[in-house]
Each structure stands twice: as C-alpha cells, then as structure tokens.
Design a binder for these strands. Structure first.
Lengths: 128, 128
DNA sequence: CAGTATCCTTGGAGATACTG
DNA sequence: CAGTATCTCCAAGGATACTG
C-alpha cells in the first residue's frame, strides 16, 4: 500500500531512487560501472577505457558513484599520486544489471537497427 | 562480414548502442518502459502515470522508443483521437531489465542512502 | 484527446589552465 | 598523476499556444 511515507519508488518525484538511477545509468556512469566490473582501475586507465569522457566528467561521475556507495576509492600516498577505483559489493551487483542491459542491446542490435530503418522508411514514404 | 568494423560495443564512440541505451535509460525512457510493462496505456494515461513528464518530453520519448522498435503505437481512427502505447516483444525484454535495475535500487535504498550519509559526514568532518 | 510548433531558460558538458 | 577551478556554449527540457 501507499502507507509508506518514504516509498523509494522511482515513480515518486522527489525520491533518492531517481538520483541514484540517473547516476548509474547516465552516459558515463553506466560505462564506468561496466568497466570496473572487469577489475580495479586507476583514474587515467579509466579515462582511456571510457572513450570520449573528459577529466571533469570522469571525476564528477566517480564522485557521484562513490557517494552512492557503489565505487570504492583507494588513495595510495605516494608520489606521483596513485588512486585506484573499484566496485563495492553493492556496486558490483548494480553494475552487473547495467551490464546486462547493455549486453542485451548489443545482442539485439540488428533487430533494433532494422526497426529503426523500417520506421524511417515508413515516415519518408508517407510524408514529404 | 568483417565482424569487428561494426562492433555494436557501447565502448565504441559512435555506435547505435549508446543511442538506444540512452533512450532506454533516460530519465523518462526508463520510467515509460517500466510503466508499459504493466500493460497498454494511452498517451494521457502515461502522462499521468509518469509523474513530472511534460507533453513534449513524453511525445519525444515515445517516438524514440517506437523508432527503436521497443514501443508499439496503435492509432484508433475515432473522434476524439485514441492512441494506445504498448511494448513490443523486444521492448518487454529490455523493459524487464530496466525494471530490474530500478527494483534493485529500491530494494537497496537504505544501504545506498546510508553510504551517502557516511560520505557526506566524512567530508564535512575532514574539510570545512 | 493527442499531439505539433514555438520560445525560453538552465545547467550539463567540454576545453583550458592551474595545484598538490 | 590526479585531480580542482573557471569559463563558455550548446542543447535538453519545460511552458505555452495552437491544430486535426
């Protein structure tokens, strides 16, 4: 029932779920989680792995994910600086689901693209 | 086929996967897919169900999902107009995964919020 | 009812430069 | 190396008005 004040339901407008979901499924958030699923990585390694991300967005994304308890940040007090990022247990669970989503899309890409072409073709034919 | 020219990999910069993923996991895309998982809905029903969405964004979101072959649009030629939206088989599969992601977040919300509080508390203590 | 067209605002995102 | 700070800019998104 709706008796709960803090539903946590994503269909509630101002509930933390939407924030966390947006972090985890954002352009860069999803890709970062996916990469970290393969193992611990340094900042610069992530930067290279996640093609197209800027320093700013990577830092921002990692902070959001760390804050949500999905990513672990380990600072090694050496010179030059060395920081490792990895998934927390929670992060690994969520990342697996995000990855599953991406994988499904990649697996079904031919169908999806075909649907697109059909849609565009139909529009081009009817209109104009 | 060369096999790798069109990888479909989301880590490729300009590949359709990223587009489709962004549609499916966008703020409104995810919520629309989630709602349609419960059954066929009309435009205005969706508008009410997905709290906070504007007409423009709903129309735009539905078009993108329809174009990707995830959502089926049925127009009933009556007055006043009546249009039903539902998931295609592909859409249902993807929606289930998106839903799973949201559900996981909702289920683990207490932990996630606790992590947040801890993060904020630590920052407040060390800096200032 | 189910959209489209238009305008307008905001903040997301990149580039750059600097620091510990 | 791993960030932070600042600036700028474009486009996503919302509000409104109109149409079939």
């Amino acid at each position: 029932m709706d008796g709960m004040a803090t539903t946590g339901d994503v269909y509630d407008r101002n509930c933390p779920s939407r924030q966390i979901a947006s972090h985890a499924t954002s352009q860069w958030g999803g890709l970062v989680l996916g990469k970290l699923l393969e193992g611990k990585l340094r900042f610069s390694e992530l930067r290279r792995a996640v093609v197209g991300v800027s320093e700013k967005m990577l830092a921002q994304t990692l902070q959001a994910l760390e804050r949500d308890g999905l990513v672990l940040r380990e600072v090694h007090p050496v010179i030059p600086p060395h920081v490792d990022y990895s998934l927390t247990p929670a992060g690994a669970q969520l990342a697996a689901r995000v990855r599953g989503l991406y994988d499904w899309i990649e697996d079904n890409l031919p169908d999806l693209c075909a649907a697109r072409d059909a849609y565009d073709a139909k529009r081009a034919g009817t209109t104009v």
